[in-house]
Amino acid sequence: MAIATDMGGAARRPLPADDASLAIRRDRIGRIVVGALVFGLLAWLVLAAAANPRFEWDVVARYFTAQAVMNGLMTTLYLTLVIFVFSLVIGTLLALARESAYRPFQILAWVYSWVFRSVPALVQLIFWFNLAYIIPSISLGLPFGPTLFEARVNDLISPFLAAVLGLGLGEAAYKSEIIRAGLMSVDKGQREAARAIGLTGPQTFFRIVIPQSMRFILPPLGNQTILNLKGTSLVSVIALSDLLHSVQSIYNRTLEVVPLLMVATLWYLIIVSIMSVIQIGIERHFSRGHGASRAIKAVEGRIEA
């Protein structure tokens, strides 16, 4: 009753002198002005770049979807994907080893991280590419018995495999730290409650621990993946035709260095943008139960409607 009369009278009663809506309106106008300035600055930059003849936009346009560039782009994407999966699997195993109660596993994981984080990616890349020089062939067989398998290392280590190993093994060490931090961020009580209702170890890990740690794992994981994408450009030193290497091959011939670098730059920009959008989507999915929930958003939606 009391509430109903209050609300009914609201329209007729005078607003207080310090009415909050005055400040909020001013705040909104301020944000529109700043937004317009930022947008104007960006537009000016784009127009200036477009007008600069040194960028040779007609050359950019000619090569933007050239077959060689497309092949290079595919190699870059595929390499990034393989490195992502490879390092995620090994990184997860390393994180579990570090967290296990078994001492030798802990030490092994620690030594791995120590080695692969210490050696620069470029050095590792060249090392794997030249592995045949150190170990010419490997063979599997019984001691003093017949050889079951023998191969020349040069045949086994293709440039692509060298790239995956050279960039992926080190990346696994970084991912293990990210995953470990994520696992540690999950409250111990969540694991206990999961065991208490009868979930098995693997069920607890995949249904409770992993989804909850995602909130902490995803932002640095996304960051890391973008770094990896750009990091694949190192493979041009072992003559693997990625995006950068393919534009290099073209400008070595045509000498149109700047526009061809622009081609590569634009493609990197596009891919990173797509990856960022995907990351936002995945992060939103795993923020379930934290921050504003769908339930609350639904309520807010109803109030606005």
């Binding site: 409650a193 009868g198 909850q212 379930r288 934290h290």
Partner: peptide
């Protein structure tokens, strides 16, 4: 474990599940 129920001091409800999802996790999965 599933034959016994445990209630903790800190509740320990699964924070990424709704209340209903919390309740059906045991019966459906175990």
């Amino acid at each position: 474990r599933a034959q016994m129920g445990m209630v903790f001091q800190q509740f320990n409800l699964f924070s990424h599940y709704t209340i209903l999802e919390n309740l059906i996790e045991g019966p459906t999965r175990v």
